[in-house]
């Protein structure tokens, strides 16, 4: 048993630089994943500029703006949580991480109302109202639901990851001298934020 364990531990060496390299590569693949959708957006916008303009007028810019502020703030609290753990302040780190999570929840609640509003107007995939519109508008809303939907899914995944990090901080698996997991989760959270920064103008501001 003992010898088994020792071979186990020599096996799992620690390499923070490697862990971060892996994470950056992963973020890169995420960017490309969304990149495919941005490409589709660009192509269809060129094809149907008029209808994209019309549809964008229907968006609720206020909710979009609030959500942008929420996500930007959550990125800040994320950074602060990492800074706190570096300064050996476990308590503060937990507080900031929980704030990040709460902001994530707020974002999703907002999103829920926003989607609910569109749906109550009868605009959802396959609905009669939508199908009676022009092709360009159908595409606009198709992309709107697909892109913000996939983004929302990423917010949820990010929050699940952060929940795990919270547990790790609490039971000292993440400490002031070993916090690459938290840093990597932070990077992921920033990515989710950055993608929103692009979605926001494309769907809400460019009219």
């Amino acid at each position: 048993m003992v010898s088994n364990n020792s071979s186990h531990t020599t096996h799992r060496h620690r390499d923070d630089v490697g862990a971060k390299l892996g994470m950056w590569l992963f973020l890169f693949t995420e960017l490309l994943l969304f990149g495919g959708m941005f490409l589709a957006y660009a192509v269809y916008r060129m094809k149907y500029p008029q209808q994209f303009h019309l549809s964008a007028m229907e968006m609720n810019t206020t909710i979009g703006t609030i959500n942008t502020i929420i996500l930007l703030t959550s990125s800040l609290t994320m950074v602060l949580s990492i800074a706190a753990i570096q300064k050996k302040n476990k308590f503060l780190s937990i507080i900031f991480l929980v704030s990040t999570l709460i902001l994530g929840v707020l974002f999703l609640i907002n999103k829920y109302f926003e989607w609910g509003h569109e749906i109550s107007k009868g605009i959802y995939p396959g609905s009669e109202v939508l199908l009676s519109k022009d092709n360009g508008e159908i595409l606009y809303f198709g992309l709107y639901y697909a892109m913000t939907g996939l983004h929302g899914l990423h917010v949820i995944i990010g929050m699940i990851v952060l929940l795990f990090m919270l547990v790790f901080i609490i039971n000292d698996n993440i400490k002031w001298d070993d916090y690459v997991k938290l840093e990597n989760s932070g990077l992921y959270w920033h990515l989710v934020d950055i993608i929103w920064i692009f979605l926001f103008p494309l769907f809400y501001l460019i009219q």
Binding site: T29, E30, L32, L33, F34, G35, G36, M37, A40, P125, G126, N135, I138, L139, F141, G142, L143, Y145, A146, G149, L150
Partner: peptide
């Protein structure tokens, strides 16, 4: 390269399941 096919296939799934136009 793989993420591009990932999103493309995902979009057909979304298109098939929810009738989203893409």
């Amino acid at each position: 390269a793989t993420p591009i096919i990932g999103i493309t296939l995902l979009l057909i799934i979304v298109e098939r399941t929810f009738g989203v136009g893409i």
